[in-house]
Structure formats: C-alpha cells, structure tokens
Design a protein around this nucleic acid. Structure first.
Lengths: 158, 158
DNA sequence: TGTGAAACCTCAGGAAT
DNA sequence: ATTCCTGAGGTTTCACA
C-alpha cells in the first residue's frame, strides 16, 4: 500500500485471495504473495481500516436455507422528489427478504432483488409491503428462472 | 444438525454469525452459541460439506477498488430455445465486469449487473461484448444512482 | 525473529434420543 | 444403536513486541 492510499500489486493480490477465500490466514496469504506473515497482517489491518474490505461474509446456498424463489422487481414511483425516493427506500430496505434495493435512472425508479420460500410469500410481499406504499405507481415482477452468475467479487485492476 | 440434513437452531445461529463475520473462529462462535469449540468445528465442516456454505468472501468497496459505475442491463433475445439462452449466458458470464447474469420470466430475458470504471467502459462493453451477439434483440440500460441496500446475507428461518 | 497466547485437531467418555 | 456434546492432550498457528 503506497502512502497516498492507493493499492499496490501485493494489496491487489491479497484482496483477490480474500474475495475467494475470506478465511485464509495471514501465514498462507504470505506464502501465496511472497511476503512475511507480519507484513500481511499489517496490510490486512489497513485494508480494513481504509474501507477497501467492508466485511467478510459466508455465502450461503439460498435453496438449502429455504429461499428457493428469487424475484426481480422493478418499481416506478409517482414522484421523484428526494423525499419520496428516500421514503420509499427506507420503507422497503428494512424487509429482510429484500437483498438488493437500488435507485435507477430510466423508466423504472427502483430495482429490488427478493428471495422467498415460494410464490405465495411473494404475493404477501407485494400486497402487504410494496403495493400499499402510497408513492408506488407501477410494479413489474420477474421470476428468476436460472441463475447463471451471482458473484460478489470484483475483478481488480493490476 | 439433525440426521435428515435439516438445520437445527444452533446451525442457524452459526450461519447467521458467519454471514456477518466470516472470520470468526470456532472458539468465539462457541462462546456465542454456548457450545464447545469442538462441536462448532464439527458443525462447520458439515455445513460446508453439505453445501449450505458455498464459500467465504471478502466484500469490497466497489468505489475504492476502481469500479464506481454500476449498471443494470435488461436484455431481450430474438429466440427462446434452450440453446440460444445458454449460448447467450455462456458468452456474457465470462466477462469479469459482469457480476450477475440471471435468466428472467417476462418481457426481458436476462438481467445483468455490471461494474465499471466509467461510462466509457460501459459503452465498450455494449459495443464489443453485448450488442455484437447475434441473439440480442433489445437492450435496456439503467445507471444505478444510489445503492440503498446490497446485501448477500439471507434471513434464516428459525 | 522470537515468545506467549491462541486456535486447531483428535480421541475417549458420557448424555440424550 | 446412534448421534451429539464435552474436555483434555498435544500440535500448529497466530499476534504482538
């Protein structure tokens, strides 16, 4: 890590490793990148402090943990004042079945990614949590038929 | 973990902890769930073997690692034969800037989530990687203006 | 680089189902 | 009978100076 807060090639390699295996310890990372274990721990602390690493997470199989149904929901609001957008996001993102809530440019204002046990649970979500919000104008729901790729890791520039 | 492969309440708590902090060790998890360290390690091995845990990943800050531009792209194909869908997915998911590639029901066939350095890089993606595919009929691009929630962790049923 | 403090692994015994 | 937990041991690994 250079003094201006940029990543050097070693930092990049550490981050690449940890994106694939967050439980690898400093010793093994050191072997992989040809640095001492102490050097790795120092860099790791810095990468955390400076926010490059937000957290370490176990990625679960959503079918095995009881959420086989994955929906993508596009939402158009009937107003675009900042207060309206924020009110909508605040009301939606608290629901634990909502994994993703993004404000978009274009025809629809928000996209949601929602995981549920089955279609009936999604109907409940629509009726009880989404469509009853006063600023919701239009909703377009798509069932995910196949998950070809779902990858939180980013490619890192060398 | 019961013999039929279901999760018991202790497994659920272990998974909840690891979704939030994948680097917590067996000793500390044991303290949190009131089990011995040996018991935790045994359960952890099983949760991995049986596929509940797909992997452990460091979640990075996409702005800090040079991918500040996040796009959501909807794609409609000009055919829906299985071979066409698979050919499209295979051609798209290899690109590292594509984090998510899902086959959808509804008007559009695929949704992509793509992270890039800037708008110019997205233009390159469209021209050189997406729109030149013969099965692509229609593309709708949305810039993500604000990321209210982006959370890989699932709520777990007790 | 070294040193004390952990975390890890295995196994034998016991409790609960 | 089976499954699961515990606790102790010996070893490896970690963290900090």
């Amino acid at each position: 890590m250079t003094q201006n807060g940029q990543l050097d090639p070693t930092d990049i390699r550490i981050l690449e490793i940890l994106q694939q295996d967050a439980r690898m310890d400093a010793t093994h990372i050191g072997l992989a990148v040809h640095k001492s274990e102490a050097a790795i721990r120092k860099r790791l602390a810095k990468l955390r402090e400076q926010g490059y690493i937000r957290r370490f997470a176990a990625l679960l199989d959503r079918r095995l943990v009881g959420r086989p149904t994955l929906m993508i929901t596009l939402v158009k609001l009937n107003g675009h004042a900042s207060a309206v957008l924020q009110a909508f996001a605040a009301a939606i993102q608290v629901h634990p079945e909502v994994q993703v809530c993004l404000h978009l440019s274009g025809e629809y204002d928000f996209i949601l990614q929602i995981t549920l046990r089955d279609a009936a649970e999604y109907e409940d979500f629509l009726e009880q949590k989404l469509c009853c919000l006063p600023m919701v104008d239009k909703v377009h729901s798509s069932l995910v038929l196949k998950e070809y790729k779902m990858e939180p890791a980013f490619p890192l520039e060398k």
